[in-house]
């Protein structure tokens, strides 16, 4: 698999992230093709309609989520449903405050746990990525590939024993159960290794000659240089943790400790046809992710193109 291509071809220490300007005007490697004649124009228009239509259809669920979150249930459960901007109100959110008083708590829990997991991942994955990328030591490749292969093992296979381990460590119903197993990730280690490999070694060598410790080299030289890579990793980890559902469902029992997704699923079971209410709750989960997407879109795309090779 040509995972290195995009990385190696860039200037040292930079992904396409920084090369974007340089290539913006150029044809993107694809064969440029302009329609000629009526038949080709018709074909091109047909194809573009198809591409656009699919994009619109993909977006329908999100649009439906937010419009119905803003429409009172009384209007939604009418035949035909009365969904129009005229009806928009915050009634559902007021009702949500009453019926699901714990929702802000779940939101806060999710923010805190996801942030903590992200910080741990940034630390451990970058450290391991640096070690695998730059340090020579016996067993390096074997260890790296063994860790990488574990990724093939689906989490569901280990669900029961993981639950038993969590019980035995008295982590059941505590955030340790979520936090500690997620402190480092294969995807992150691979991503950071790929990134750090592209950094020049001269500065490290100079620092080593000057008597800087190995940890000091990582902390003072590597970390500041891999901020763009860490941004990519941080966003991916944060989003994945935000969306995590099955594991919190298994290890958290007290309702006030729930993560947001888990809380939403319980709301769904409590108020199963009060769709306005449910959608306003779902908006609490979807909106932050959409904001993260718009703010960090560039990094997300970059993560997919470089490390996406590992992320499902």
């Amino acid at each position: 698999m040509s995972t290195n291509g995009a990385v190696v071809r860039g200037k040292p220490g930079r992904w396409a992230l920084h090369r974007r300007r340089a290539t913006a005007g150029a044809v993107q490697g694809g064969p440029s093709w302009r329609p000629r004649g009526v038949a080709q124009w018709a074909g091109a228009i047909l194809v573009m309609t198809f591409v656009t239509a699919w994009a619109v259809v993909s977006l329908v669920p999100l649009v439906w989520l937010f419009t119905t979150a803003l429409t009172p249930s009384s209007a939604l459960l009418r035949i035909p449903p009365d969904v129009s901007v005229r009806n928009f109100s915050l009634d559902n959110f007021k009702l949500l405050q009453e019926r699901a008083p714990l929702l802000p708590r779940w939101f806060l829990n999710t923010v805190l746990v996801a942030s903590a997991v992200t910080v741990f991942n940034l630390f451990f994955d970058t450290l391991a990525g640096y070690t695998f990328a730059k340090l020579q030591f016996p067993g390096r490749d074997i260890i790296f590939w063994t860790i990488l292969c574990t990724m093939m093992i689906p989490g569901q296979v280990t669900l029961v024993p993981m639950f038993m381990i969590v019980k035995a460590l008295h982590w059941y119903d505590s955030y340790f159960a979520i936090l500690i197993p997620a402190m480092a990730g294969v995807f992150g280690i691979f991503l950071m290794k790929q990134y750090i490999q592209t950094l020049p070694s001269e500065i490290e060598d100079a620092a080593r000659v000057d008597g800087c410790s190995e940890f000091g080299i990582w902390w003072r030289i590597i970390l500041p240089l891999c901020k763009p890579g860490m941004a990519v990793l941080g966003i991916f980890v944060f989003m994945a943790e935000w969306k995590a559902f099955m594991w919190p469902l298994i290890v958290l029992k007290t309702e006030s400790k729930f993560m947001l997704e888990q809380g939403l699923a319980t709301l769904q079971q409590q108020f199963f046809t009060d769709y306005g209410l449910l959608m306003s709750g779902a908006a609490f989960s979807a909106l932050p992710m959409i904001l993260v997407f718009f703010v960090f879109q560039r990094y997300l795309m970059e993560g997919w193109s470089v490390g996406g090779v590992l992320k499902g």
Binding site: S58, P61, L62, L65, L264, M279, A282, A286, M289
Partner: peptide, 17 residues
């Protein structure tokens, strides 16, 4: 962006919708 955006919502949210 248009194709990727629906994917940023979690599976729980998408299933609810």
């Amino acid at each position: 962006a248009a194709y990727y955006l629906p994917g940023v919502a979690s599976a729980v949210v998408i299933s609810m919708v």
